[in-house]
Structures are given as C-alpha cells and as structure tokens.
Simulated scan of single mutants.
Amino acid sequence: MTEELSFLIDVFLHIFLGLIAGYFLAFSIEALFAGWKVFKSKLKPKRRFPLLQLPRKALLECIENLDVLEIIQFSLLSKRSKTIAKRIRWNPIDIRWASGEEQQICLKLPTDPGLEWIIHYDKKKKFIPIHCPWKYPYFGSTLLGPKSLHCLILKDNGIEDITQMMEHVCEVFRSPIREMHITEESLIEWIIKFQPIIRHVCIRKDVILSVESLDRILKNLEVTESFRSDYHAYFQYKEPIPSRCITIYNSHWLTLTSILTGNNSIIFLYDSKLTPTDINTILKEWQMGFKLRNLEFMAIEVFTFLDIHRYSNEVLNSFPNSVENNGRPMTVKVHDDDIWTLPEGPPVHNIIRSDGMILSIFRHDDVIEGEKIRIFWELQVWNQQT
C-alpha cells in the first residue's frame, strides 16, 4: 500500500511540474513574440508622407495629380481634406448609379472615354477571414479591349451608405448624377430631393407597385433624355411619360392613350399588347399631324397567333405606298452616343405627311413557340430633302 501511494505521489509530482513548465514555456514564447514585435517596430518605424503639412500650393498640385479614386479616398479622410479637394476645379465627370446583381457608382471623364473608375458594393463576400490577403476596401483593375476599369470594392452595408457616397462624390467633383438606376422604392424620394433634374433614369423590377408610385416619379423627377423601365406592372397607365426617349420592357401596362398624348421622340416598346388596330391608329394620328409631332423613331415588339399577312394588312389598312426611299438615313440617334442602325433593305411601307415628312415602316417576324409569332415593327421618320 505504501509503495502504491509513493508511486501515485511521484506521478502527480511529474504531472504538476510538467504543467508548470508548460505554462512558463508558453509565457516565454508569448513574451518573446511581444518583444520581437516591439523590436521590429523600433527597428523599422512607419514613415508616412505628411501630405497635409505641405504648403497650400504644393498640396493642391499633389492632389491635382491623383486619379479619381485616389481623390475620393483623400476627400474622405477628414473635413479639411474634403474642403481642400473641393477647392480644385475638376473637369466635369459623368456619374452613374448602375445596378445589376450589385450596386455600382461609375465615374468617367468625357475626355477619356476608355477609362472608367468604379466604386463597387460587394454583397457576395459576407465574411472575410482574418488570414485573407485582402480586406474591405480593396482595389482591382482590368482591361476589357480598349477599355480600362479601376475598381474600389466596398462591403455593401445598405442603400444609405451608397447614397451618402453618391452625395459626397457629386459635391467633391461638382458634377450632377447623369444616370440613375432605381432599385428600391426608398431611392425615389432620395433622388427627387437630392437631384430633381436628371438625364437618364432606369426603374428596375418590382420597384413600382402602383399608378401613384409611377406618378410620383414622373411628376416630381424631370428626366430630360431617357426613361427606361424593366418592371412588371399590374396596372394600366394613361398619362404621357415626359422624356425624349422611353424604353419600356414588359410594356403591356403602357396604353395607347399614353403614347398618343406624349411628346416623345424615341419610343421602344417590348412585349407590347398593342393590337393591329392600335398600331394603325398610331400611323393615322402621325399622318394627320396633330399628335406624335416630335416622333423620330418607334419600335414595337408584339406577339400574336394571328396570320402574319392578315395582321400586317390590318396595321397598314388605308395607307397607300407611293414614296421612294432616296436619301433615307440609315441610323437614328437614340440618346447621347447610342445609335440605332436601320435595316439596309427597303421598308415594307412608306407613309407621307402633308409637311413632306415620311414614315418608313419595317417589319421583322419569326415563329418562337409553336404557332406564336414575334413581330418587331420599326417606324422611322425622316425628310426626303435631307
């Protein structure tokens, strides 16, 4: 019994001494690493260039040579850095709020169209491991043919962060938003208050749920160049859309009344529910000259089970075809640098108005599902004297 007790005490002492030794060893290693970090920091101290301590003239010259993303980063450092960045008279810059799966603020100088800077808000990477070589924010660059893209990638923390960044960018560069993609309803109120006049607007899916919401946009936001919608509406809209160019996908909600009372120059209607009689009415109203006075080009996509020849005859009913195509332009300017090319072949029909203007009608059709036919009408307005 005594020998067994002695053996157990001996084992216990070995274990106890081992634990104490392990503790002091771990403590020593930790202390060693801590000491090494201090030594390393003293051996190679961080030296940063005192940019804000430069004389004012030298400081402004330095900032003027930064690229767009560097200017934005500098202006976000402090109130003073933002004030300094605003003092410089920057060249006008195109600012777009674009959206796909994720949100982007896209910046481009008109003098250098091949170069674009993008602030990209990343939703996919919800968690970045500590050992990962990159963390938010990080940079990326890529070449797409003749174009060069430089990206600043930030974590997407919600719309409020993006609107604050957009306001900051507009203030620093003293430039308005050129194009806005509205991806959720809260952005309607924001853009109306921040910038009620804008060149281009795109309404994404599931944003507009009522006639009242659409009215709120069209009556309080002046879209001077192009209005585009991708949403699925479950209502009928009878008011005009006051923009030079309109592009409407899933356009079954846009009525004939809205088209005829508008002053649009360019109209694209995809998946339209206009009937042959409706399209015939559009042609008649244009020819009479009281409506659609500003029309330059119109495209209508329809789907039908009707016989294509019968459908076409209903559309062109009562219109003689007696105009030659000499001098017809082959392109139409949609907006800015967007050019639409017309078919080279002759139109299926020409209509002339009393003031000499000509409406050339092109038709493209193909069977897509069983006997269902897709018809794409192109209506081009031009002057034979040009």
Rank of each mutant, 00 (worst) to 15 (best):
Ile248Phe: 15
Phe12Glu: 12
Phe16Pro: 00
Cys106Gly: 07
Trp90Thr: 01
Leu254Thr: 06
Phe39Trp: 15
Ile282Ala: 02
Leu66Trp: 08
Ile197Glu: 15
Tyr234Pro: 06
Gln385Gly: 09
Ile375His: 03
Gly289Arg: 04
Lys219Arg: 15
Asp336Cys: 08
Trp340Ser: 04
Ser186Leu: 10
Pro92Ala: 05
Pro50Val: 00
Phe290Ile: 07
Phe7Ile: 12
Gln164Leu: 05
Asn280Thr: 00
Ile241Lys: 11
Leu107Asp: 01
Leu274Glu: 03
Ile15Tyr: 14
Leu107Thr: 01
Gln380Val: 06
Val332Ile: 08
Ser251Ala: 14
Gly22Ala: 14
Glu61Tyr: 04
Ile246Ser: 09
Asp206Ala: 10
Leu187Lys: 00
Ile246Arg: 09
Thr275Tyr: 04
Ala299Asp: 08
Ser272Phe: 05
Asp161Gln: 00
Pro45Tyr: 00
Phe49Val: 00
Cys202Arg: 14
Tyr311Ala: 00
Asn280Trp: 01
Tyr237Trp: 15
Leu149Met: 07
Ser148Phe: 01
Ile72His: 00
Leu43Phe: 07
Asp337His: 12
Leu66Lys: 07
Leu43His: 06
Ile29Val: 12
Met298Ser: 03
Phe290Tyr: 14
Glu184Ile: 08
Lys82Glu: 11
Cys132Arg: 09
Ser99His: 10
Leu144Phe: 10
Phe235Tyr: 15
Thr275Trp: 05
Val201Lys: 02
Phe173Ile: 00
Asn263Ile: 01
Lys147Ala: 06
Pro176Val: 04
Ile93Pro: 02
Glu116Val: 07
Ser243Cys: 15
Leu59Lys: 01
Ile351Asn: 00
Glu167Cys: 02
Ile130Trp: 08
Tyr237Met: 13
Glu222Arg: 14
Met357Lys: 13
His150Met: 01
Leu283Ala: 01
Arg80Thr: 08
Phe24Ala: 07
Ile259His: 02
Asn383Trp: 12
Ile130Phe: 09
Glu296Ala: 05
Gln73Val: 02
Gln384Arg: 12
Ile352Asn: 05
Lys37Asn: 14
Ser210Asp: 09
Leu115Val: 12
Lys238Met: 13
Lys40His: 11
Pro240Glu: 13
Arg363Asp: 11
Asp215Glu: 12
Leu144Ser: 10
Arg204Gly: 09
His181Trp: 07
Ile105Asn: 05
Ile128Trp: 13
Lys147Ile: 02
Asp336Asn: 12
Gln384Ser: 13
Ile88Lys: 10
Gly356Ile: 03
Val172Ile: 10
Trp286Lys: 04
Leu256Arg: 11
Pro242Lys: 12
Phe303Ser: 05
Phe127Val: 13
Pro196Asn: 15
Leu342Met: 09
Gln53Ser: 12
Lys147Tyr: 11
Ala26His: 15
Glu160Val: 05
Val367Gln: 14
Ile128Tyr: 10
Trp190Asn: 04
Cys245Ile: 11
Glu344Gly: 10
Gln384Val: 08
His150Asp: 03
Lys42His: 11
Ile208Gln: 06
Ala233Gly: 15
Lys46Ile: 09
His131Pro: 07
Thr261Pro: 04
Trp382Met: 08
